[in-house]
Amino acid sequence: MATALVQQGVQVTDLWPDPCEPRDATIKLAGPEPLALVWDEVTGWRYAPYVTGHRGVRTKLVTSEITYIGDRVLPAPWAVARDFVTEASRPAPPSYRSYLDFADGLDDQLRGYDTGSHPYGRELYDSLEYTRLIEPLLARTHRTALAA
């Protein structure tokens, strides 16, 4: 994703994932009024002026200025970059799925999503930290799904 933004002339200053309920990721952008693109596994991508946040702390954006982009929970990086640069938007927050959805294929998509183009890369999803954080969530979700 960061590479696709840079290819469109957007300056990325920082990025970080947060694998918690729901999983999300932030890409912080340079500018006189810093913006951030934030992805989560329920609503997909959105952007707005950046307020605060860092790895392990949910990113806060200027709520009144949030713009949703993309046509699915995990669109192609080039499509997100295009929508951001051209200021394409969706009028309301979408809800593509619940973070409690289990085995719907999103984890497989995440493992293959633009993993070679940023500092975290595939190592994030194969790391002990990610496993330590995500496995209890998946186990709890799986138990809930089995009980239903």
Rank of each mutant, 00 (worst) to 15 (best):
M1K: 02
A4K: 06
A4D: 10
L5E: 02
V6N: 01
Q7W: 00
Q8F: 09
Q8R: 15
G9P: 10
V10Y: 00
V10T: 07
V12R: 02
V12E: 06
T13I: 08
T13N: 04
W16R: 04
W16H: 06
W16A: 00
P17I: 01
D18T: 05
P19V: 07
C20L: 11
E21Q: 14
P22H: 11
R23N: 09
D24R: 14
D24N: 12
I27E: 09
K28A: 09
L29D: 05
P32S: 13
E33C: 06
E33S: 02
P34T: 01
P34C: 10
L35H: 09
L37K: 13
L37V: 09
V38A: 10
W39G: 02
W39Y: 07
W39Q: 07
D40I: 05
T43F: 02
T43W: 00
W45Q: 01
R46M: 03
R46Y: 03
P49F: 07
V51K: 08
G53R: 01
G53P: 11
G53L: 07
G53Q: 00
H54R: 10
R55V: 01
G56Y: 09
V57K: 08
V57S: 00
K60G: 02
K60V: 06
V62P: 04
T63F: 01
T63N: 03
E65L: 04
G70P: 00
G70K: 03
D71N: 10
R72Y: 08
L74G: 03
L74E: 09
P75W: 06
A76N: 10
P77I: 05
W78D: 11
W78V: 04
W78S: 03
A79Q: 13
V80F: 04
D83M: 03
D83I: 05
F84G: 00
V85F: 02
T86S: 12
E87S: 12
A88T: 11
S89T: 15
R90H: 13
P91Q: 13
P93G: 04
S95H: 10
Y96N: 04
Y99W: 15
D101N: 14
D101Y: 11
F102P: 09
A103I: 06
G105Y: 12
G105E: 13
L106H: 02
D107C: 10
L110G: 11
Y113A: 10
Y113T: 04
D114A: 15
S117I: 06
H118D: 12
E123G: 01
L124W: 15
D126C: 01
L128W: 15
L128Y: 14
E129V: 13
E129H: 10
Y130F: 15
T131W: 14
T131S: 14
R132C: 13
R132D: 15
L133V: 06
I134V: 14
I134W: 15
E135C: 02
E135R: 13
E135N: 11
E135Y: 10
P136N: 09
L137A: 08
L138Q: 14
L138T: 03
A139W: 05
A139N: 11
T141S: 13
T141N: 12
H142Y: 14
R143G: 12
T144L: 15
T144Q: 12
T144M: 12
A145P: 08
A145K: 12
